[in-house]
């Protein structure tokens, strides 16, 4: 791990358990993410990897254990939940842009209503981030008028406008056509270079190799293996990891 990563834990999960009905989806998860660290979570579908990051901003509720984000413990206290959500940005597989608002309005909504920024300031910030995700000219269009790759970049910019400390990515390229995946990954790589703390659930192993500080492999609700990418890809220790990597890297 490089010195870019400070030795301050910013996300801590301790013995987190979660069930969907009777299905035990997370089993005693321990995970620590340090400030500036980039964690890529991978694993077969249904392994609980999306559920983990959805627990970090309380889109899902954990039923046992402890989650502390940016020094605030996640409890049922709405104040705490909203405080954490202000500091944690999230990018979804399905983009989830607000279709009734223009791109610019999508970007300024939360800064204006949650951060209480003046409109002018929020718009300036929004245009700055649109510039960074390389679509400044789309500011006045509606999401429905953009391609999937453009929509996902708008979604990333929308999260960044809240100036979050942490970004969560839930399979951000899985719903995209192949030719659009790269434009989204490029934006994410650039974000990683700027030192953002990131937790990504993704199958893009090339991206993982490039940016990850830590790889986490999950299967059946457990963290099976974790380690720096070089080691993770070269000498996976567990058989389940080997099998998964052989399947995903086969082609």
């Amino acid at each position: 791990m490089s010195e870019r990563v400070a030795d301050i834990p910013i996300i801590e999960l301790r013995q987190v358990d979660k069930w969907f009905g009777d299905f035990h989806v997370l089993k005693g998860i321990d995970l620590e993410v340090k400030k500036g660290e980039r964690v890529v979570v991978c694993g077969p579908s249904g392994s609980g990897k999306s559920t983990i990051i959805r627990c970090i901003n309380r889109l899902e509720e954990h039923q046992r254990g402890q989650i502390v984000v940016a020094g605030i413990e996640l409890t049922s206290d709405v104040k705490n939940i909203e405080a954490i959500r202000r500091e944690v940005g999230m990018v979804f597989q399905q983009f989830n842009l607000f279709p009734h608002l223009t791109v610019l309005q999508n970007l300024t909504l939360a800064p204006i209503w949650v951060r209480k920024l003046p409109r002018k300031e929020a718009e300036d910030t929004a245009r700055l981030y649109l510039e960074r995700v390389k679509i400044p000219e789309q500011a006045d269009k509606y999401p429905g008028q953009l391609s999937g790759g453009q929509q996902q970049r708008v979604a990333i910019a929308r999260s960044l406008c809240m100036k979050p400390e942490i970004m969560l990515f839930d399979e951000p390229t899985s719903a995209l056509d192949p030719e659009m995946i790269k434009e989204v990954l490029d934006v994410m790589i650039e974000l990683a270079r700027d030192g953002m703390t990131m937790v990504c659930v993704t199958h893009e192993m090339g991206f993982a190799r490039t940016v990850a500080d830590t790889m986490v492999f999950m299967d059946r609700g457990e963290i099976v293996e974790r380690g720096p990418p070089a080691e993770f890809f070269a000498n996976p220790k567990s058989d389940r990891t080997k099998l998964f990597l052989s399947q995903i890297l086969a082609h």
């Binding site: 901003n57 889109l59 959500r85 202000r86 944690v88 399905q94 607000f98 939360a110 949650v114 999260s159």
Partner: peptide, 18 residues
């Protein structure tokens, strides 16, 4: 309203009434 719209609003820190 798709579930994702509500999740996106929640993830941005909007309260219930917002």
């Amino acid at each position: 309203i798709p579930r994702g719209q509500i999740e996106a609003a929640d993830a941005l820190g909007l309260g219930y009434w917002q």
